[in-house]
Each structure stands twice: as C-alpha cells, then as structure tokens.
Amino acid sequence: MKKIPPAVFKPSMLAGPAIDQTGVEERTARFTKRSIKAVSKMQGLLLTLRMIDLTTLEGKDSVGKVEQLCYKALHLHDAFEGLPTVAAICVYPSHVRTAKKALQGSSVKVASVATAFPSGQSHLSIKLADTRFAVEEGADEIDMVISRGKFLEGEFAYVFDEIASVKAACGAARLKVILETGELGSLDDVRKASQLAIAAGADFIKTSTGKIQPAATLPVTLVMLETIRDHYYKTGTMIGMKPAGGISTSKLALHYLVMLNETLGADWMDPHWFRFGASSLANNVLMQIAKEREGCYQSANYFSVD
C-alpha cells in the first residue's frame, strides 16, 4: 500500500539528538583504521564499481560526451572479464534522452539533476517543471537540491513543501535529495536537514552537488547514515544514501563502505541503497583491481578517461 507523505510540516520532524563534532570525527577516524586486504579488498572494489553514479555535470556536456560516458558505464574496462556495470549515469535534464537511448536494454539507471541545480535559486514552479521534464525524458532517478537559503533562514516548512512537491512530480522516479552540506555549516544542521528530507519523502539523501567545497566527507556522511538508522529503528523503512563529490580514490571509497557496513549493515551494502556520486573514482578502482590481479600498478594510460 502506497501512502502519500504527510502534506504538512511539523516542528517535531526536526527533533533529534545533539551531534558532537569531535565525537563524530573520532568515530570516522576509527573506520579508516580498518585494514582491508586480499579477498575483502576485491569484494569492496567490485561493490564500489556497482555503486557508482558516473557523473558529468558541466556546461560543456554534449551529446557526444554523454554517449561516450554511457559506453563507459557499460564497458568499464573490457580488457578485464567479468567486471560489473556502474549503478547509474548522472546528467543534466537536457541529456537524459541521449543517455536513456544509449543505455537501452541495460540495467544502468539514468539519474538527472533537477530543480535549478546546483544553486536551487529559482521559483518552485520552475523547479517542478524542471523535474517533470527530466522524468518525461525518461529519468529513473531525480537528484534535487534543497533551498539552502530558506533552510538557513529557518523556513523549514518551505523546504519541506518543496521536497514533498518535487517528490510528487517525480512519479515513479526515485528521489535523491541533495542537502549541500558544505553550505549548511554544522553537523547539527546536517542532521536536521536529513530528517526534514526523509520526512518529506526522500528515497535517498545525498551530501553534495559536487560544485561546493567541502563536498562529501566521512563525518557528514556518518551523521546522515545515523539519521537513516534512527528512521529505520522507528519505522522499519529503508532510506538510501549517496555521498557525492571528493571521493576519487578507492581507498577512501573502501573507508565509506566500512562505515556503511558498521553503521547500517548488510541490508544497505547494495547499489539500491548506497551510491557514490563520482566522476574519476571508477578509474582509480579499476587501477586497484588491475593491481590485485597482476600484482603491480599499471599506468593511467591503460584506462580510458571517458
């Protein structure tokens, strides 16, 4: 039975535990102490590939560029047999149709940013039109941005309504809500924004657009994972997580997976519930896989840039 999210914002949606930044940083440092070797390293690398939202979000994106990226999504490195595909391609709405066509018949999803990405500085009607356009073009997933300005002004009801109406405009597409944590300023606000997004109907919560520094960090992601965990404790409903921006090495990606494993556990260790928003991570992972297979590192020239 599908239930429409509650249409009204309630202040209780923001009530959550305090966050102690030092404690969060200590915990995330502990994740990075896990030593991932041999079989478990290979498992982690392959899972990382399957969790990637291969992303291009530039003004100079063209049909050709998007088509090439889609080919890469399906053929990460054909020299190695048995490699998985990435989870999704992430593009601007105007390239959804191209990507959809290029990926036809595969299981790779097409995600589109929408809602006046990346700043979100536009009227709600335009954001909704942007969303509908992307969905009509064939997007399986929508990555929206919240109005950070409104959030910081304390207009939580506005942000809530915005997310809820974008969710309604998504139809069957899964909604990822980008909090742009680099603009929120504190982990307490990250927690609050995560709760607000989940209450308003987010299927996924996502850290960043990738256009603002800092983008995804381990501490920010941990706070979001713990919000997801509290929601699960309370309701039994799973919410997805997507750290995006700044995760470009496989070592860091493995740290994220350790954190995911030890915070939410086995059920979330799947591309359906966890994604990496990244453009250059895939090649770094491929180089590590090559090293595990051949015993030595190979030149970056052996791996295609697009």
């Binding site: 070797k37 965990r229 350790v258 494993n261 556990g265 059920d267």
Partner: peptide, 11 residues
C-alpha cells in the same frame, strides 16, 4: 539491523 555483517574483513 545487521551491522557489521555485510562484509567480512580478511585477516
């Protein structure tokens, strides 16, 4: 929840 059981770390 099944924390920690999604991945076994090799020695």
């Amino acid at each position: 929840l099944r924390p920690g059981s999604g991945w076994t770390y090799a020695p």
